[in-house]
């Protein structure tokens, strides 16, 4: 995969929510660089902070109770210091978003046409007529047959796959530099998921944008990602090129996730499950966030010290004191 210049640079991103039980530290010091044309996957379970960490990029988080700290640099500009008006110009225009549930992310009382043209008129200042023409092109681009008719329809008249395509059309409308797909295929059936994945990959090649793909599914990631961040308890535990992450797994959590996945054609193998439950963001364990569930927590530092992200191979970083033996790395 050829990747270009850094388009988005995130440094020490932190998100905290105030709750009745105390502050919930939902994202704790996430850093990464996103290159033009690259697909970065952020993998994690629910509660890992993966979605919040991307919503926070454009401050799409209610503040209060939320609080966003750190640096998010898009083309030399720190988004977190921008005034609200300027930030709104970034949302949708330069960072596009596709959400998980196209049923609740689309407004049920507006036609598809209105929802696609909204950003075009607002951000690009197109006239109603031009916006409509562009919307037609966009629906065509995302593979919706008979776009003219679809523009006049309401979301409930479309199938789940079609609604997700409309969401993608909206996300792409202003040709953003970065497209964030938040569990964009989770609610869809596998055959429809395959259509959508192929569509996003084709559009990415055509338009040269960078994609952040957020998912819990290590299977989906394998097919699309150039680089992967594994998040857990608000922290990045492992970061690697996709091939290295699967072939040379270094973090016990990543290894556990991979071992717990059933794979077609490997039936009969007993799944190795990770015991216990993900941590409570209000009451994070001291030391490594994963250590209460970790099979390798032998180092006394695991329970007391936060393991720093250290480079174990070029481009491969791991936050763990333990050296996973080569045979356990798959």
């Amino acid at each position: 995969m050829s990747t270009g210049d850094v388009v988005l640079s995130v440094r020490d991103l932190r998100v905290t929510f105030g709750t009745a039980r105390g502050p919930a530290r939902v994202v704790e010091g996430v850093s990464y660089d996103l290159h033009a044309g690259e697909t970065l996957a952020i993998v994690g379970e629910s509660g890992s902070g993966k979605s919040v960490s991307t919503l926070a990029l454009t401050r799409l988080i209610p503040e209060p109770p939320g609080r966003v700290e750190g640096e998010v640099v898009l083309a030399g500009q720190d988004l977190l210091t921008l005034p609200p008006g300027a930030l709104r110009k970034v949302r949708g225009r330069r960072i596009g978003m596709i959400f998980q549930d196209p049923m609740t992310s689309l407004n049920p009382v507006l036609t598809v046409g209105r929802q696609v043209t909204e950003g075009l008129e607002h951000h690009l200042g197109l006239s109603e007529k031009d916006a409509r023409r562009r919307a037609r092109e966009l629906l065509d681009l995302v593979g919706i047959p008979d776009p003219e008719r679809r523009l006049g329809e309401y979301p409930h008249q479309l199938s789940g796959g079609m609604r997700q395509r409309v969401m993608i059309a909206i996300g792409l409308a202003c040709e953003p530099e970065v497209l964030v797909a938040d569990e964009a295929t989770t609610a869809l059936d596998v055959t429809i998921q395959a259509q959508i994945v192929e569509l996003v990959q084709r559009l990415q090649a055509e338009l040269g944008m960078a994609v952040i793909w957020i998912t819990h599914d290590l299977g989906v990631v394998a097919g699309i990602a150039d680089r992967v961040l594994v998040m857990y308890g608000g922290r990045v535990l492992e970061e690697a090129a996709a091939d290295d992450l699967y072939a040379d797994t270094r973090h016990p959590y990543t290894a556990g996730l991979l071992a717990s996945l059933p794979v077609v054609g490997e039936a009969g193998r007993r799944l190795v499950s990770i015991t216990g439950l993900p941590p409570d963001p209000v009451d994070l364990p001291p030391g490594c966030v994963f250590h209460p569930r970790c099979p390798h927590r032998d180092d006394p530092r695991c329970a007391t010290e936060l393991p720093p992200l250290r480079e174990v191979a070029p481009g491969h970083r791991v936050a763990c004191f333990y050296e996973l033996p080569a045979e356990a790395r798959r």
């Binding site: 709750t19 629910s46 509660g47 890992s48 919040v52 209000v282």
Partner: peptide, 11 residues
């Protein structure tokens, strides 16, 4: 219910 209690939904 407060935002944080719907864990998994937002987080």
């Amino acid at each position: 219910k407060s935002v944080i209690e719907s864990r998994g939904h937002l987080l």
